[in-house]
């Protein structure tokens, strides 16, 4: 079922990672995402993975949950690995069969890139798993507040994100329901050529659209009833404070960045 997707889900808790200032967490994780593309050799990647492992430990989340976040991208990882193995021809030849050639270089490259993708996804799921969506948008709003100078309404962007996050599960559930209802009227969603399949989506997309408009109208009323009038004069229940531990995390991230760049400069690249 669609509603079983775990990406973007928040798991409440009181771990160090949960309690990290969300602005700091955003900066750290975004830096990390950039960082994971920096290393050209195993030592650099190892540093990145060690950093990630620290993050996983700090999150105190069950490993099973973290592995589950990888399920949707398993296919991509596999494809890239296979392509790497088949196309890269360097190092010792391990197996040759016609034009197919598997080499140590190919395997090493495949593993390297697969690890990079996995590290990327696990890192970003750590962010969404340990930060409530509202806190996340709140942090973005505050981090982006300098943009107000160039007349960007940061509050509205953040509000839209909050609402989108709130309604994604509701609309997924709704999609499930509409699909069942149309199937009960004989809608065939599984067979036919591309055009027929696209056409078969109309009975699902239109009710979904209509329902989204209805929900939007209701929500707008509800928000007005609760005195919503944009970002001016609005206070926030959650106050954000950068603590000493947050400064440590920032410094550690900076140190990691420096270390990775150093690795690249001093060691030969492992990638072909």
């Amino acid at each position: 079922m669609l509603s079983e997707l775990t990406i973007g889900q928040f798991f409440p808790g009181r771990s160090p990672l949960h309690r990290m200032d969300p602005r700091v967490k955003l900066v750290v994780i975004f830096t990390y995402i950039v960082l994971i593309f920096v290393p050209q050799n195993w030592l650099g990647l190892g540093l990145g993975l060690a950093f990630l492992l620290t993050g996983v430990l700090l999150s105190q989340l069950p490993v099973r949950l973290i592995l589950r976040s990888l399920r949707p991208i398993l296919f991509i990882v596999l494809i890239t690995s296979v392509l790497n193995i088949l196309y890269i021809d360097s190092g010792t030849v391990l197996l040759q069969w016609g034009w197919l050639k598997i080499t140590t270089g190919g395997i090493s490259n495949a593993v390297f890139i697969a690890l990079r993708i996995v590290a990327l996804i696990v890192g970003s799921s750590l962010l969404t798993y340990t930060t409530s969506p509202t806190t996340l948008t709140d942090a973005m709003e505050r981090l982006m507040s300098p943009l107000r100078v160039i007349r960007i309404n940061v509050h509205e962007i953040a509000m839209m994100m909050t609402i989108a996050l709130r309604f994604i599960p509701t609309l997924m559930e709704e999609t499930d329901k509409i699909m069942s209802a149309q199937k009960a009227r004989g809608a065939d969603l599984e067979s036919g050529n591309l055009l027929q399949r696209v056409r078969a989506l109309v009975p699902i997309l239109i009710p979904l659209l209509v329902s989204s408009f209805r929900r939007a109208a209701d929500l707008a009323t509800a928000m007005e009833c609760r005195c919503y009038h944009g970002g001016d004069g609005r206070t926030r229940m959650k106050q954000l404070h950068v603590r000493r531990s947050d400064v440590c995390y920032l410094l550690a991230t900076a140190a990691l960045l420096a270390a990775m760049i150093l690795c690249n400069l001093l060691l030969p690249s492992a990638l072909i």
């Binding site: 709704e174 329901k177 509409i178 069942s180 209802a181 149309q182 009960a184 009227r185 004989g186 109309v202 009975p203 239109i206 009710p207 209509v210 329902s211």
Partner: peptide, 15 residues
């Protein structure tokens, strides 16, 4: 087709 099913709030499937 032989066992017709009307879901709750069926008006939400009109398209």
């Amino acid at each position: 087709f032989r066992v017709g099913l009307v879901f709750q709030y069926p008006e939400h499937q009109l398209f």
